[in-house]
Design a protein around this nucleic acid. Structure first.
Lengths: 227, 227
DNA sequence: CGCAAACTTGAGCGTACTCAAGCGCAGTGG
DNA sequence: CCACTGCGCTTGAGTACGCTCAAGTTTGCG
């Protein structure tokens, strides 16, 4: 049985099953050992809105974005998934989003019928999947607060702090996604994201060795903005 | 067993179990017949953020809002729940939102341990609750698109269309919530909501016999705006 | 090295916000 | 019966934050 005490308390972070579930012989590993591995080049679609939701994924390396498009091309990025994070779990029959690899990406893929078989054998798995859905819900709700009520500066800081927590960071945060991806995630334009980051750099709160590498220089005021 | 084919295809609408599950002797009713009934006056809190999530609710009459507050008083309304709709289901141990009665409201209340007992007896119920969580997730994600990428006009129209579908409408839509509630739901200010509705009225797309009563006059262009 | 894509910067604009006043309706009391 | 009051809503004027359009600049890759 999976460790139920490890549901993330961080609503901005995708759910992960306990990484060190060594005392659970049939824990996480039993789910993903049956999985196949699949490699995607940058910008390759994993699935599209409306596709039959017959698989679930876990990022091994790389990064994935899920998003929705409006008719006129406006895009809302729903979430980014980094190494160790799972996505593509649907209760219904079809996906409600598009998912694309951001960079070269390796995914573990588990078929839904395999999932169902395992659930039949060990009903606790259903509970775990429910909690995964619930943690995605929590994340989406927190994102609504950001999109509905926060300024551009607060959004960008919130994003950077979240990435900082999720990336295994030696010094700098490596951003796999473009400014356009970030903008579409935060409900801003690419120019506003760029300007806001420049402002943070001018205020010496962050450093940008390159556009995709961010170093947090002064955590305190950033955390305050991320209330 | 509940009718699994009835997961709402409308992401903007809270989930309802099939209303006419007459062929399922132990369907929805078996869940809520064990429930107690509780009455709330307008603006009375149902639960607060951080409270132990030990109960789940179903609106009999009235309306409920769930929301989150930031330190400085900014508020994001997550959802409105009308008659027949359920809320307060959490996978974790505490609520992530505040819930308040908007008007005088009657709720069915089911305790979580009762829910757990029923799940133990009939595991399909867990599946139904998972689907309820999943439909809330879908709604939240659709709301992210609205908050991140839609104009004030599109947001207001989207809200009105959603209310129109959910309220059992004879002619007019009766809004239980204030302009402030709507504004905090749509990520706008009260003035913008008011101005936008006035504009819709001037364009003869809606009529407002009173501030809380809205009549859809020309559905076509409104539906186009709600793409 | 050269090109294209990604990112940054600048100038001007527009949508939605802020601040403020006015309106309308329901409830209350003279 | 009607003024009074309070609250919710509307309307107005001015502003600001983030967007649009348009160069530049940097980066990565062939």
């Amino acid at each position: 049985m999976l460790n139920h005490a490890t549901v993330s308390s961080q609503p901005t972070q995708p759910f992960r099953f306990h990484a060190a579930a060594t005392d659970h012989a049939e824990g996480e590993d039993s789910l993903w050992t049956a999985a196949t591995r699949q490699t995607f080049v940058a910008n390759r679609s994993v699935y599209s809105e409306g596709d039959a939701a017959d698989r679930m994924f876990k990022v091994v390396t790389g990064a994935v974005r899920t998003f929705r498009l409006l008719e006129d091309g406006r895009r809302q990025v729903n979430a980014f998934y980094l190494a160790g994070e799972m996505f593509g779990l649907e209760a219904g029959e079809t996906y409600h989003f598009c998912a694309e690899a951001i960079t070269a990406t390796q995914l573990l893929v588990i078929r839904r019928d395999a999932l169902r078989r395992r659930m039949a054998a060990r009903p606790e798995i259903m509970n775990d999947l429910w909690r995964l859905t619930a943690s995605e819900l929590e994340r989406a709700q927190a994102h609504c607060v950001l999109l509905g009520r926060k300024s551009a500066m607060e959004r960008v800081v919130s994003f950077l702090m979240s990435m900082d927590e999720r990336v295994q960071h030696g010094e700098a945060i490596e951003l796999p996604m473009s400014r356009q991806d970030i903008a579409d995630f935060l409900g801003l334009t690419i120019e506003t994201v760029s300007r806001t980051m420049t402002l943070l750099e001018e205020q010496k709160l962050i450093a940008m060795p390159s556009a995709r590498r961010i170093v947090i220089r002064d955590r305190r005021p950033l955390a305050a903005l991320d209330a």
